[in-house]
C-alpha cells in the first residue's frame, strides 16, 4: 500500500516500487483505486480498462509489471457474479440504483470492494498452485484517509455482524493486518506532508495496520552551505562577480552582466538555504517517527518513463543496501 499526502508523488512512487519489485522474473500488479488514470499517464499508456494488463518490463529485463484500475461498480458486479451467480438479479439491482447506492453512498462498501479486489489478486493462484503475482502494489488513497480506507472492513464487519459481507470483510482484514502487507507513506521534506505522515503513522499503529517505510520523495541536492552564502553576499561579493566574469559571463564592474547577476543568484541561494534549513527540521521530525526511510531524488528533467526507471533502480539499491 502506497499512501501519501496529495502532491507528494505517491502514484509515481507506487509505480517505481512495482518496477523495483518486478525483478528476476517476478510479476507485480500495480493497482489504482481513485479513478484518476494516473498510472496510464505515467507509463504513457492509454487509459486502463477494468482489466489487468501488462504495462512494463522491469529494469534489467525479466520481471513484468501489470496494471489495473479498479472500478468500484464493476468490482461489485463481479463480486455478485462470483458469489451469487446473480446475472439478471445483478442487472436488476443496477437498474434500481442499488449499485449506485452501494458504491457511492453506502458507508464504506466502495472501500470494501476496492481492498477486496486487491486482496483477491494477492491470493490468486495459477493452476500449478503458484501465486499469480509476487507483489501487489496499490496506489492507495491519501494519508488523511488511508487508515479509514484500510480499516473499513473492520467497521463493515461490525456493521454486518454476520453473512457473506461480514465474512468477506473479515477475510480482507486478515490479509491487510498480516505481515504480508506494508503501508508505505510518501512524503516531501515539507512541514505539512511530514505532519500528515506523523499523524498517519500514529493512526495506522493504533489500528494495528503494518507500517512499511516512509519514502521521502523529491529530495534536492544541497549545493551551498550557509558560510559560503554569507561570504557570497558579504565580503566576497566582488570576488564572486569576478569569478562569474572569469567563467565567461560578462563584466564584473558595477553594471556589468556578471556584477548584475550576483544579487539575484545570491537571493536564490538564500532561498535555497532557508529551504535546506526547513528540510533539516523536517528530517529531525521524521527521525523521531522511528520508521525506516528511503529517499528518492528530485528529477530535474521532470517525471517521465526514464525517470521512473531511475527511481525504481534507486529503490532497489536502497533495499539491497539494508
Amino acid at each position: 500500500m502506497v499512501s501519501g499526502k496529495g502532491g507528494t508523488g505517491k502514484t509515481t512512487v507506487a509505480a517505481a516500487l512495482a518496477l523495483a519489485l518486478a525483478r528476476e522474473g517476478r510479476r507485480t500488479l500495480l493497482v489504482e483505486v481513485e479513478g484518476r488514470q494516473g498510472i496510464a499517464q505515467l507509463f504513457g499508456a492509454e487509459a486502463l480498462p477494468y482489466e489487468e494488463r501488462k504495462i512494463a518490463v522491469a529494469p534489467g529485463g525479466g520481471g513484468e509489471v501489470y496494471a489495473l484500475a479498479i472500478d468500484a461498480e464493476r468490482a461489485l458486479l463481479d463480486y455478485l457474479q462470483m458469489f451469487y451467480k446473480l446475472g439478471s438479479a445483478g442487472r436488476a439491482l443496477k437498474k434500481l440504483g442499488a449499485i449506485d447506492f452501494a458504491t457511492t453512498i453506502a458507508p464504506g462498501l466502495r472501500d470494501v470492494l476496492l481492498t477486496g479486489k486487491a486482496c483477491e489478486a494477492v491470493r490468486r493462484k495459477d493452476k500449478a498452485g503458484k501465486f499469480v503475482y509476487d507483489h501487489v502494489i496499490m496506489d492507495a488513497p491519501p494519508t488523511g484517509r488511508i487508515t479509514r480506507f484500510l480499516n473499513v472492513n473492520d467497521e463493515v464487519a461490525g456493521l454486518a455482524r454476520f453473512g457473506p459481507i461480514h465474512n468477506q470483510a473479515q477475510a480482507v482484514m486478515k490479509v491487510l493486518k498480516s505481515p504480508e502487507t506494508a503501508v508505505h507513506l510518501v512524503t516531501l521534506l515539507e512541514e505539512m506532508p511530514v505532519q500528515e505522515t506523523a499523524d498517519g503513522i500514529e493512526e495506522l499503529r493504533a489500528a494495528g495496520l503494518p507500517i512499511g517505510r516512509v519514502i521521502v520523495n523529491m529530495v534536492r541536492p544541497h549545493h551551498l552551505d550557509e558560510d559560503a552564502l554569507r561570504a557570497a553576499s558579504g565580503e566576497r561579493r566582488a570576488d564572486v562577480a569576478k569569478a562569474l566574469s572569469r567563467a565567461g559571463l560578462g563584466g564584473a564592474r558595477r553594471g556589468g552582466l556578471a556584477e548584475r547577476l550576483v544579487d539575484p543568484l545570491v537571493a536564490q541561494a538564500a532561498e535555497h538555504a532557508s529551504r535546506v534549513e526547513l528540510e533539516r527540521g523536517q528530517r529531525t521530525v521524521l527521525e523521531g517517527l522511528d520508521t525506516a526511510t528511503y529517499e528518492l531524488p528530485l528529477l530535474g528533467a521532470g517525471m517521465d518513463l526514464a525517470g521512473l526507471y531511475e527511481l525504481a533502480t534507486e529503490l532497489r539499491k536502497q533495499a539491497d543496501d539494508e
Binding site: L224, A228, A232, D239, R246, L265
Partner: peptide, 16 residues
Amino acid sequence: ADADVDEITAGLLRLH
C-alpha cells in the same frame, strides 16, 4: 585565492 570563491560561485550557478 580564487579557488574558494570559484567553488562558491559554481554553487550559485548550479543552483541557478
